[in-house]
């Protein structure tokens, strides 16, 4: 079943220096599955994710033939309808987690705010639920972290707090933008298994934006490969390591390997026609 469908999405910024076309006609559909998005830095992955929530600030603008989530026309929805969807039914873990947390509010207050105001939970019950969410993402000493401000967390703790916060309302769709880039491999595995469980058991849809090709190949069902605002290849994640597009192959060749010979890593000859 299709949860989200996006047809011919474009994101354009009108800047003083001219038009920047960050996304140029991206189409995809998502069921209750794990869709990976990989690709060049600056290729429009984050802007694609933010577009689904209509979180593009002026002078940026979004155009699309269709953007539909669970029967709701996202292009036509009022700002009020969008606010009701954001965080509740569609959540996004931002690429700069510490930047998206409120810097002057304790982590505990940020985690429990929604539970208390929206779900009318008692302070005590909300606190327990928040601590549970922190424990699930492998935070050591969750009581201490509840009392901490964002600047008192390590990079990876900030990422995990953000994931915990986004998962508390049980969204139907989670857009995770580089959610595990600051995590060591063992903590990362735990966090991925939580996301995996939500997709499998609760039927959540997941858009997983990452530059870690090996991780995406292992973890996702399908992968979109982006280059300069376009999708250049779409494939089953298990086939990612045998990708056919020269850009995707080029990406795989640039990876360092444990025990490699340490000579300069192969570069990528970016052919202009990939962007056509």
């Amino acid at each position: 079943m299709t949860l989200l469908s996006v047809k011919n999405l474009r994101v354009t910024f009108d800047t003083e220096a001219g038009k920047v076309e960050a996304v140029r006609g991206v189409s995809f559909s998502l069921g209750r599955e794990r869709l990976g998005i990989v690709g060049e830095s600056g290729s429009g992955k984050t802007m694609t994710g933010r577009s689904v929530l209509r979180l593009i600030r002026p002078p940026g603008r979004i155009e699309a033939e269709e953007m539909r989530f669970d029967g709701i026309d996202l292009m036509a929805a009022s700002e009020r309808q969008m606010r009701a969807l954001r965080g509740q039914r569609i959540a996004m873990v931002m690429q700069d987690p510490k930047y998206s947390l409120n810097p002057v509010m304790k982590i505990g207050a940020q985690l429990t705010e929604g539970l208390r105001l929206r779900d009318g939970m008692s302070a005590k019950a909300a606190r327990l639920k928040a601590i549970e969410a922190l424990e699930a993402v492998q935070i050591r000493g969750p009581e201490r972290v509840m009392e901490a401000y964002p600047h008192e967390l390590s990079g990876g703790m900030g990422q995990r707090v953000m994931i915990a916060m986004m998962l508390i309302p049980n969204p139907d769709l989670l857009i995770a933008d580089e959610p595990t880039s600051a995590l060591d491999v063992t903590v990362q595995a735990e966090v991925l298994s939580i996301l995996d469980g939500l997709v499998r058991d609760r039927g959540m849809g997941l858009i997983f934006i990452s530059h870690d090709l090996r991780l995406v190949g292992r973890f996702c069902d399908r992968v979109l490969v982006m280059y300069k605002g376009r999708v250049v290849e779409e494939l089953e994640a298990k086939n990612l390591m045998n990708a056919t597009h020269p850009y995707t192959q080029g990406l795989l060749n640039c990876l360092p390997r444990i025990g490699g010979n340490r000579s300069p890593l192969p570069g990528l000859d970016r052919a202009a026609e990939w962007a056509e």
């Binding site: 060049e40 830095s41 290729s43 530059h211 080029g250 795989l252 640039c254 990876l255 570069g267 990528l268």
Partner: peptide, 8 residues
């Protein structure tokens, strides 16, 4: 935060 090619 870099893709494989820019990382390289």
């Amino acid at each position: 935060a870099l893709d494989a090619s820019v990382q390289a």
